[in-house]
Design a protein around this nucleic acid. Structure first.
Lengths: 211, 211
DNA sequence: AGTTGTTTGAAACGGTTGTTTGAATCGCTC
DNA sequence: GAGCGATTCAAACAACCGTTTCAAACAACT
């Protein structure tokens, strides 16, 4: 919001932490990026660790604001709501709109959680995941056990997150023109939707899953 | 193989690099873990960077040796070969047999590739991925385009890798008893197989994928 | 035993780190 | 404009980093 010194430090810290990690990022790097004196970090945040925690929080806030959920009637068909959901999380994770450091910083926390992670899970991931489970419950037979809903939910998220985690390896394994043609966020979301819908169709008609 | 100084350094380096990252891991940490003098690192590897590269390579070699592919007739049904494949990569990524630092070190390379990554992709990921594509080609209609095979292949791997990347977050989002009951590597593999087989069934009967 | 090349050891080097200091500067009220 | 708290600045601090040094210990062969 305000373009104050404190805010400039927070965003510069986000960028530097995101592509170097906590240890490798130096407060001198961050302060140079923010065009601020070195002592400002200790003045505003006390220590490097605290700056990191607040930078992670800010990254999450900015990212959510950039790609909000579309307004849609709560009684629209569940298939449509699932499609919306996948597209939104794909764009949040992979989208080139906004700045990439925000998601990369969050990803670091997912991979090796620090103190900053608990807050991110409770305030952000959990409500989002509950929303997904609600949609899946409508698409599957009523007797589907909770644990299967969760497993399928993780499969949906996992397929999207994979391209954020392993994007560079995906690029090495895919011919360059094919990569450019088929690995935009929207297309990945479409593919995930297609695969999941196909599976759900089958799972809800043949009620017993394969063993 | 040999329990020489050099080998002890390599494995200690793997452990320390895996849970601290390249920068945060100090050669003093590594040498203390390996019970060798600090100078030994420079004697055997010249510099820290080179030690890192060789530690990543050793991690991969050890991990592959621990969970080999099962011998199976090449003309066995493709569905069976897919099941084998998923179970092997799930056990390699998530399995508690062997030591966990090996996979975590490889994961760091996937997330932010350094020089050590190219070799890992070409020698390990690419042949493994090609094997998967070959199986998928047998399970899908002949006119399925290459790019769709690859997308589905990434979906298979993505669902498994997710539990390695976000395992700790999954644990936070799942009731403890449910987690213990349903998130062992074998069960995750079974779930992925179930979902993928259900989708493939549907995609190969209704030849045109949903748009 | 003596010689040669390889491996280990303790100590030190220069450089960078996070953090602190104390003075200088700003923004404001009386 | 004097006073005062909030903010910025250059400089320095001790601690730690990767790397080097060089002598001691070892192994193998004549």
């Amino acid at each position: 919001m305000t373009d104050s010194t404190r805010e400039r430090i927070l965003q510069a810290a986000g960028r530097v932490f995101a592509d170097k990690g906590f240890q490798a990022a130096t407060v001198r790097d961050i302060c140079q990026e923010a065009e601020v004196n070195i002592a400002a970090v200790n003045y505003y945040f006390g220590e490097k660790q605290q700056l990191y925690v607040e930078a992670v929080r800010r990254a999450r806030e900015l990212r959510i604001a950039q790609v909000p959920f579309p307004k849609r009637a709560a009684d629209s068909p569940p298939a449509e709501r699932l499609r919306d959901f996948v597209h939104v999380i794909a764009r949040r994770m992979l989208g080139t709109d906004g700045e990439p450091w925000q998601v990369r910083l969050m990803l670091r926390e997912i991979l090796s959680p620090t103190r900053a992670c608990e807050e991110m899970v409770e305030d952000y991931f959990r409500p989002q995941f509950e929303r997904l489970l609600g949609i899946l419950a409508e698409l599957l037979p009523d007797d589907t056990p909770e644990y299967r809903l969760r497993q399928i939910g993780f499969s949906v998220i996992g397929q999207c997150l994979f391209h954020r985690v392993a994007g560079e390896v995906v690029q090495m394994l895919t011919p360059p023109d094919e990569y450019r043609a088929h690995y935009q966020p929207e297309q990945i979301a479409d593919h995930v939707c297609g695969l999941v819908f196909a599976a759900l169709d089958n799972l809800s008609t043949h009620s017993a899953p394969r063993t």
